[in-house]
Design a binder for these strands. Structure first.
Length: 411
RNA sequence: CGGGGUGUAGGUCAUCGGUAGACCGCUGCGUUUGGGACGCAGAUGUAGAGAGUUCAAUUCUCUCCACCCCGACCA
């Protein structure tokens, strides 16, 4: 991608009202644009990051048997009335469709997937079944805040798993939990598996929490064994695992996994005929992961006073190629050649090809955007590349081949 | 939803009872060229909306709307 063509330009000033770092940096660097409270456009750079995160999640969901699909945003109000959540779900967006029909913008998809499954699941042979989607959800939060950490429209991965027995479901829960641990490791995020209450769905759930001052959850982390427990279920200040001392921390929930109770299966009659000819209710589990919130959480963790420092796995590009002295034909040709060679090697590269822009401005933009590797080509660099990792201070001069080895090795 | 705050150029803000200004950005020309360069010239505004007070309102008052912060809420 040529930087001169990239939409939009970066901003020097912090947007009015933006307090959290993810909000400030993502807006300034041109990743997101706020439309209304808690609703953002994902601009080209931002969308690249969303896609990177989504793909990491997809890989692990597919490994545990997940089949990706896409359910509608628009739901029949009727289904929500059946489960009682048309009234009880506080942040539900409701609207009227043609013929004055009640419609709902989906905040979660039990009301769609249960009736869908009820139509198709007849036998124990149809189970287990793991279905997931990555999709925009809507919740009319009374107070959106902190950039992407709390929005009214957000991108979420939700996997619904359906089983013949609770034992089978619990077995799968462990697999899903491992998959989540792997996902956050691949994303480069230190997420703590945190015990929490299950809310109305189940007695216990686990949340994946990232420590950040802008988080909204209070969790307690054991200073001895690192176990984490949500405030809502901490009774005394001692670790239930090892008895160690607990430290209170602010955190943001980026994932939540829990076994579902059978309420929805019963409402929508999601049952099957077992081997012995008996009709049984399906046992389910639900596994959510906030894709867009995770993007915000990453920025909360990885930044400095100059800008974002993306982990390599989710950066919008791997390499930020910065050209100086581009009025000089030779330098321009050389930079263009490096750009093409990197692309030919499958490297995702953003090439700052702007002429007449000062070095300082290019460095500042590069630091703000936060791509892992910066490569400078100028009249000084000759046949070498001047490289610098965004996360480090030192600059090195290396050959093209050496640079390729470096970025390959880092993966 | 309770409390507080803010709405002025594309962005960040200043101003002020007599219908607007800076900086950034943008356009043109020239000089620069390794950490957000400089000079000159230019373009860009229903001052959030409505009502009221006044000779006169962006400015004061009221209502509404939007956004932000604290709290409550957060399957």
């Amino acid at each position: 991608m040529l930087y001169s063509k990239l939409f939009p330009k970066t901003l020097k000033q912090v947007p009015s009202g933006a307090q959290s770092l993810n909000h400030q940096l993502l807006v300034r660097a041109g990743f997101i644009h706020q439309e209304i409270a808690g609703v953002y456009t994902y601009l080209p750079l931002g969308w690249q990051v969303i896609e990177k995160i989504s793909n990491i999640v997809r890989v692990e969901m597919n490994k545990i048997g997940g089949q990706e699909m896409l359910m509608p945003v628009l739901h029949p109000g009727e289904n929500w009335k059946k489960t009682g959540r048309f009234k009880s779900f506080d942040t539900l967006f409701k609207l009227k469709g043609a013929g004055n029909k009640d419609l709902v913008l989906g905040p979660t998809h039990e009301e769609i997937i249960y009736p869908l499954l009820a139509e198709h699941i007849k036998s124990y042979k149809d189970l287990p079944l793991y279905l997931y989607q990555i999709q925009t959800k809507f919740r009319d939060e009374p107070r959106a805040k902190a950039g992407l950490l709390r929005t009214r429209e957000f991108i979420m991965k939700d996997l619904y798993a359906f089983h013949t027995t609770d034992e089978e479901r619990n077995e799968y829960y462990k697999q899903a939990r491992d998959a989540y641990v792997k996902i956050f490791k691949d994303l480069g995020i230190p997420a703590l598996v945190t015990k929490a209450s299950g809310g109305t769905f189940s007695d216990l759930s686990e949340e994946f929490q990232v420590l950040t001052p802008f988080g909204e959850d209070i969790i307690f982390v054991c200073q001895k064994c690192s176990a984490a427990i949500n405030k809502e279920i901490v009774e005394n200040k001692k670790c239930p695992e090892c008895g160690g001392d607990l430290k209170e921390e602010k955190a943001i929930e980026v994932g939540n996994i829990f076994p579902l109770k059978r309420a929805y299966a019963e409402v929508f009659d999601l049952s099957f005929t077992d081997k012995d000819g008996e009709r049984r209710i399906v046992s389910a589990g639900c596994y959510g992961l906030g894709i867009s919130r995770t993007m915000g959480a990453i920025v909360e963790i990885y930044h400095d006073d100059k800008g974002i420092i993306w982990p390599e796995s989710v950066a919008p590009f791997q390499v930020h190629l910065v050209g100086f002295d581009l009025e000089n034909k030779e330098v321009l040709n050389n930079a263009g050649k490096i750009y093409k060679l990197l692309q030919a090697e499958g490297v995702e590269v953003l090439f700052d090809d702007r002429a007449g822009v000062s070095a300082g401005a290019k460095f500042a933009d590069s630091d703000l955007i936060g791509i892992p590797y910066r490569v400078v080509i100028s009249k000084k660099t000759g046949d070498k590349l001047e490289i610098k990792k965004r996360s480090e201070k030192e600059t090195k001069f290396v050959s093209f081949e050496e640079f390729l080895k470096i970025i390959r090795f880092s993966h």
